[in-house]
Amino acid sequence: MYSVNYHRAASVADAAKLVKAGDAKLLSGGMTLIPAMKTRLAAPSDLVDLSKIKELQGVKVSGKTVTIGAATTHFDVANDEKLKKACPALVHLASLIGDPAVRHRGTIGGSIANNDPAADYPAALLALGATIVTNKRQIAADKFFMGLFETSLKEGEIVTAVTFTAPAKAAYEKFRNPASRYAIVGVFVAKGKDGVSVAVTGAGDDGVFRSKEIEAALAKNFAASALEGVKVPAKNLMTDIHASADYRANLIAVMAKRAVAAANA
């Protein structure tokens, strides 16, 4: 790792000031950034640690509205009792991220700001029609995730929370790479007042996306059987050492079926 200057931010306003220095980067759980710095893929001059900022922590559920602070760990999302009632699918998703030690440190804000094409949270936020709240503005999830490791965040902009309306039904099914534990294909289905939405992670050439084919079939009939014979095109899907685009296309339909069955259970 190259030399770096560490700063612990006391508040969001403090962090916004500190992050203007040199080539500074925000640090949350560090489960992506520290490994990247160790391999010198990232070399910020300064690190601004958000993890001790109280206002960025915790899950709030009020009526149907769920708000999760950016520095809330995967562990805290996976174990939140109110969220288990409001949106058990998201609790389940958080419990599948990495391993216990990764979940103890990694955060939702860091995960979505990083927008790894195989990360789990982007699928949930896109399918739930969530809003990403920053220190500057509010961004709809479909305007936030912009491709591989790309988001619409501006230089130094800080994600403070994500918020969404609890869906009537939802579920997440993940086909994991057994070594990395990231998704080879992950499918989040949600049925709410605006209809059915289905978001796919791990598979898209351009990161997380919504599957129109699967949404169309489920809009008519929200049942696993409605997906019999539905084909997802392999165009624009990834081919890598783990799986081919065709394999992923088939897996998307399989995971979607399982997710719908789980959402209806």
Binding site: Y6, R8, L27, G30, M31, I34, P35, K38, L47, D49, S51, F75, P100, A101, V102, H104, R105
Partner: peptide, 19 residues
């Protein structure tokens, strides 16, 4: 490298000492 920090298991290779 797992140790407990404030009662939680973490990977001490993926955390700075100053953190």
């Amino acid at each position: 490298c797992v140790v407990h920090v404030d009662g939680k298991a973490v990977k001490s290779c993926s955390m700075l000492a100053v953190q």
